[in-house]
Design a protein around this nucleic acid. Structure first.
Lengths: 126, 126
DNA sequence: TTCTTAATGCAACTGAGTTGCAAATATAAG
DNA sequence: CTTATATTTGCAACTCAGTTGCATTAAGAA
């Protein structure tokens, strides 16, 4: 379905992704915007933003949902697929513009993949 | 810490992994054994089995925890790391003995990775 | 067999994510 | 600008995986 109306909720959520280059967990978003926006609204707007190819979601270390801006995706499909990196020290999550190829697997059809790399981020590594 | 005592709960859980070559979700295990074992016990025994390198855990499509037998791991560490495959049709999850190499990433230290490949399994593909 | 400590059951809780419905609001039509 | 309509929001209550504290049970060593 996707975004149909440019509401204040949509603007506020988009603003978060504008100012933040890393991925943001839903928990964090509820924490940041929870006083202004209802939790349910946050979940629903994110759903619509994802349907529209504006953000993409994935699961972090503990199964919590994270969102990050898309680059080059549209309502017709998410073409910007890539691995994500979660820092085990500070928890930060980033998108990696890295191409990890999944080999063909006999007798199975590969449709997609979720790759989460864990370690120390740029800030915690130095 | 790991397993110290060979209790009935441990035996029952091990039996499930003996007869099942694929991975098993905690939800499924609670479903199978919930009438004989308390849910809390199931979670705790699985924790200990994992500490001992007998099973390993990972997250499936929806953030639910899955467990599968280890091959060659011990209490000193999980050496048997590999990608997992979840069938989007039937939900089945398998371990893949496949080596997907994660490249070095500048300014970051890579410690581990979680790779979940999605598609159609052997049974659903044919 | 007894004793100690680990393991279990239970009940209540936590926290992410969802649902149904009434009220609010964006947008198109007049 | 005003009205009509369908989308969006807030709220409250719920679902469900996973956890916690504590009293009870049962391994297994002495």
């Amino acid at each position: 379905m996707g975004i149909i109306r440019k509401t204040q909720s949509v603007e506020m959520l988009l603003a978060e992704f504008q100012s933040d280059t890393s991925a943001i967990s839903v928990v964090e978003l509820v924490d940041r915007l929870g006083s202004k926006l209802n939790k349910t609204t946050i979940y629903r707007v994110l759903d619509r933003l994802e349907d529209d190819g504006i953000v993409h979601s994935f699961l972090g270390n503990n199964g919590i949902k994270w969102y990050a801006k898309c680059h080059g995706c549209s309502i017709s499909g998410h073409t910007d697929v890539h691995p994500h990196f979660q820092c085990l020290n500070c928890g930060r999550v980033d998108c990696l513009s890295l191409d990890i190829s999944i080999p063909k697997i006999p007798n199975r059809e590969v449709v997609g993949s979720q790759i989460l790399i864990q370690g120390k981020c740029e800030a915690c590594f130095g």
